[in-house]
């Protein structure tokens, strides 16, 4: 029934989905209202045919034709797509250009237990432990504000500058980009430092966290200013706000 109705309708639907090699392209009709696009997107992602799109992790490219989306509109589209759990918006393409999506750091409250998996396309912060048998994966850095006893993978899309840090660093295995490493065996007992693992040459090394910014100065912003200017630190949302 539904198909016949669609065929009789001369207009194309607000959202058209096509598979291209290893990813999906969502064409958003630039002639219809944005509200209709959201409605149709919701129908396609959660409606009767949603099962066609479920399953494996899949990157999504959003093509908007002559329409340029506002930040708010982009957010709405991204949220609608990410609710599926396996689809991830990578870029917005319009006639005026291409914009890659950058994901905010994500906070996860632990413990992440055995058998549980956390995946995030940006930096990942776990507040609590990552237990043996658990897996955390981030395209950016992984920071564990607790004990890292399970497996962590940073820079999962190939970023070799990504790091894995933990307040109590004793992972069962670490992976950064394409390099897999078992943890160093010769751990000093006693004092526990906040440590991180990074790629050095072809191997993975572990060092204390305060050396991170010196090793990777281009990433993130430093806290500047004299003591007096740091009063507002409680309200700041990130290092950039302190500048």
């Amino acid at each position: 029934m539904a198909q016949r109705e669609r065929r009789e309708e001369p207009r194309k639907s607000p959202v058209t989905i096509k598979g291209v090699r290893d990813h999906l392209v969502f064409y958003l009709d630039d002639a219809c209202a944005f509200g209709d696009i959201l409605l149709d997107l919701d129908e396609k992602l959660n409606g009767a045919q949603a099962r066609l799109l479920s399953g494996a992790q899949m990157d999504v490219s959003i093509h908007t034709g002559s329409r340029d989306l506002s930040d708010w509109e982009r957010d709405a589209v991204r949220r609608a797509v990410s609710r599926t759990g396996n689809l991830l918006v990578r870029e917005f393409v319009s006639d005026s250009g291409r914009q890659t999506v950058k994901y905010e750091p994500r906070l996860v409250y632990g413990p992440v237990r055995a058998g549980q998996v956390v995946v995030h396309p940006g930096d990942l912060v776990v507040i609590g432990d990552v237990n043996p048998g658990a897996l955390v994966v981030a395209e950016g850095d992984v920071y564990v504000l607790g004990a890292l006893r399970g497996v962590a993978h940073a820079g999962s899309q190939g970023d070799r500058e990504a790091v894995i840090a933990a307040a109590d660093f004793r992972p069962s295995q670490i992976r950064i980009a394409d390099i897999i490493s078992e943890p160093p065996v010769d751990r000093m007992p006693g004092v526990v430092y906040f440590e991180y693992a990074y790629i050095d040459g072809d191997g993975v090394r572990v060092d204390k966290l305060w050396t991170l910014h010196g090793r990777r100065p281009r990433r993130g912003a430093e806290v500047r200013g004299t003591g007096g200017e740091r009063k507002g630190i409680g309200d700041a949302r990130g290092p950039a706000d302190l500048l």
């Binding site: 413990p111 058998g115 048998g133």
Partner: peptide, 14 residues
């Protein structure tokens, strides 16, 4: 034991 603790951890999650 490590094995028992890991399984217990999985079960708590479930």
């Amino acid at each position: 034991e490590h094995a028992a603790v890991r399984d217990a951890d999985r079960v708590i999650g479930l």
